[in-house]
Amino acid sequence: MTASSSDAAFPAARPRRLRRGRALRRLVAETAVRPENLILPMFVKEGLTEPVPISSMPGQVQHTKESLRKAAAEAAEAGVGGLMLFGIPEHKDTTGTQADDPNGVVQDALRDLSAEVGDDIVLMADLCLCEYTDHGHCGPLQVDGHVDNDLTLERYASIAAAQADAGAAVVAPSGMMDGQVAAIRAGLDRAGHTQVPVLAYAAKYSSVFYGPFREAAEGAPQSGDRSGYQQDPANAREALREVALDVAEGADMVMVKPGLAYLDVVAKVADTSPVPVSAYQVSGEYAMIEAAAERGWLERDQAIVEVLTSYRRAGAEQILTYWATEAARLLR
């Protein structure tokens, strides 16, 4: 029986009855965001002696090893579900050799955090090369300036093994190379890390909303852009194809990035994916709300919770958000 044929009509039907008072609204809420749904992206930069504020992301910093440990402990104490690490090395080169160096910045951070909070929170490592290459692209370049897809896969497999060796509980490839999940899964298995899951950035769009991140991660392309390997914002069916390919290659979780402008894609993926679905509330979304709140144009805490709720309502089971620790405290 459909809702229209079964529902009583006004005045017997008064939906407002269930909207009176916070306790009643909470009791009948269809969607809930919990601290364990949240993943905190964090930037750690090699060689720093003090944290460096990120001007386009108020409240966020490039961490030192020490400040990273402190922030990770605070996130774990707040009940945040996971941490996603991004590394910024002192030295970059054409193939991003620091990305899989056993003593690279992310590997050092993973070892530190494994000892500090490894039993209390899921340690995740973003797996890409854009922060490590001197040209800022997500893999080694061919002579024509385009990323060499298949050579990049070899690099990704090596990086995955290095991250898992250092303590990553989850590796998260974000480069949008064809075949990346299969290559990484094989690399992890060869290295004995058969139990380390792969969280694939399966539907990552070529988006203007990454702008502040490129300051934070110091990984902007030195020429061209990433539209040759990231998805066109106009395409939704393509996202479902990418998700299906990644799952077939062994992805244990999949991600849609960005989130807010792509909630329709999040919903489509959540409706069809056989594995858990994550969405990334990216730097541009964070910056927009922070800027509007600073000007008094909206109420900041309510905006944070409302937008995170929209992610969960669309079907995301995990949300990467720079507000993770703060939001976890608000939610509790």
Rank of each mutant, 00 (worst) to 15 (best):
G175F: 07
A172R: 12
L188Y: 05
A244L: 00
R214E: 10
V181P: 03
V208Q: 14
A200R: 00
V247G: 05
V275M: 15
R241N: 14
A220M: 12
Y205R: 01
E249L: 00
M255D: 02
A182Y: 00
L245D: 09
A248M: 03
V275Y: 04
A279N: 09
P173F: 00
P221Y: 10
V196C: 11
A191F: 04
A191H: 11
R241H: 15
A261Y: 10
A217N: 03
P173D: 05
M176P: 08
Y280Q: 03
V282I: 11
Y286P: 15
G187K: 00
V171A: 05
G224K: 14
V266F: 04
V266L: 02
Q230L: 03
A203P: 02
A234V: 12
M288W: 11
G175W: 08
A183D: 00
A251I: 07
S273P: 09
G187N: 01
V247Q: 00
A248P: 07
Q180V: 01
A236Q: 11
L260D: 10
P233W: 01
G187E: 00
D189A: 13
A216S: 03
V198F: 02
D264Y: 09
M177E: 13
A183W: 00
E290S: 14
E290P: 14
A182D: 01
R226T: 02
T194Y: 15
M253V: 05
G219C: 14
G179Y: 02
A251D: 03
A216V: 05
D232W: 01
A172H: 07
R185K: 11
E249M: 01
S273T: 09
D252Y: 04
A236H: 13
V265I: 11
Y201P: 08
S174W: 02
E238S: 03
V275I: 11
I184K: 02
Y262D: 07
E238A: 08
A203G: 01
V275C: 01
K257L: 04
E249V: 02
A203M: 01
A248F: 03
D189K: 08
E285I: 15
V181C: 02
A216Q: 02
M176R: 09
A251G: 04
E290D: 15
G175T: 12
G192V: 05
A220Q: 10
L240I: 14
A248E: 11
E285N: 09
V254N: 03
G259V: 00
D232F: 00
R185H: 13
D264S: 15
S227C: 06
V181R: 01
A191Y: 05
V181G: 02
A261V: 06
G192Y: 05
V256K: 01
E242M: 08
M288F: 11
A270N: 07
H193T: 04
S207F: 02
R185L: 13
L188Q: 09
V198H: 07
Q231L: 13
